[in-house]
Simulated scan of single mutants.
Amino acid sequence: MKSLCVYCGSSPGSSRAYAVAARELAKAMVNDNIALVYGGGKVGLMGVIADEVMRLGGEATGVIPQALMDKEVGHRGLTRLHIVKDMHERKAMMAELSDGFLAMPGGIGTLEELFEIFTWSQLGLHHKPIGLLNAAGFYDGLIAFLQHVVQEGFLRPAQASLLMHDATPDVLLERMKTFMPIPYPALLDPETAGKVV
């Protein structure tokens, strides 16, 4: 895994723990020579992780729509900054540039990006690892809800296992680096889907 797409909030959140987690993730990525790909912003957790990756000597590539660039929220101190026409082009380019995906705490935009890439994995459209950095228990409710979705028969255990989660960046990155894709037919086969984990 040479590059990692990180989805995270354009706000810092209400807990200092989220920024601490962003800096820890940046350090773990730079130590592993993993380049950052993200939404190109200079504000919130987006700015925190990008600034820290750059400060530590790593590479950071931002992808931002022109409309957000016009609002002066684009980060001009990155290794590379791609300015694209809209959100669809942004997400497609971020996916193309990345060997894996990780969601930190964030709002609706972060969740939308996470669930889209999670869906693409479930459908076999990509075979890249997906992680959820559960900083300060931020995603406890979501993790519990996904288990509820499994229990209610709308998601198979093998499909749910495509989304790895941990509270510690080093541990999560290690799991993502050793991720082995599950063959698409096994994700859909009711006889095997519950056994592939």
Rank of each mutant, 00 (worst) to 15 (best):
L132M: 14
H127A: 15
E72Q: 11
E113N: 09
M94Q: 10
M46P: 07
I182Y: 02
L142S: 15
A60C: 06
E59G: 11
A92T: 15
T192A: 15
I130M: 06
L125S: 14
D166W: 01
A160V: 10
M180D: 12
V20H: 12
L162H: 06
L111M: 15
P185G: 11
L81V: 10
A28S: 07
H165S: 15
G106D: 05
E113W: 02
D86Q: 05
R23N: 07
G100D: 05
I117T: 10
A186T: 15
L36G: 10
A19W: 05
D189H: 07
I108R: 00
L97C: 03
G106K: 00
N33G: 12
S10Y: 10
V149L: 08
H148A: 08
G77C: 13
V196Q: 05
K128I: 07
G77R: 08
L102A: 09
C8L: 04
E116V: 14
K195R: 02
H148R: 04
P183Y: 13
E96M: 03
H88A: 12
G40M: 02
R55H: 08
E191K: 06
H165G: 12
K128A: 06
H127Q: 14
R156S: 15
V43G: 05
K85G: 08
A193P: 01
A167Q: 13
P65L: 13
S98P: 09
E116L: 07
E72D: 12
G9H: 03
R156H: 11
A92C: 13
I64F: 08
G47E: 01
G100P: 03
N31W: 07
L123F: 01
E89G: 11
A186Q: 15
R80L: 06
D170N: 02
G141M: 00
M29T: 01
L97D: 02
L4A: 03
L68R: 03
V73P: 09
L97Q: 00
P185A: 14
T110V: 07
D99F: 01
G39Y: 07
L68T: 09
L78C: 13
Q66E: 08
L188R: 11
A103F: 02
L132F: 14
L125A: 15
Y184V: 15
G194T: 13
S98M: 00
P185N: 14
H126L: 02
D170E: 07
V6N: 01
G141I: 02
R80Y: 03
L132K: 11
I130C: 09
I108M: 05
A193K: 05
N31H: 09
L155M: 15
A35K: 01
D86L: 06
I83M: 11
K71P: 01
G44R: 08
Y139G: 09
D86W: 05
P65G: 07
L188H: 13
G124V: 04
E174F: 05
D166P: 02
E24H: 03
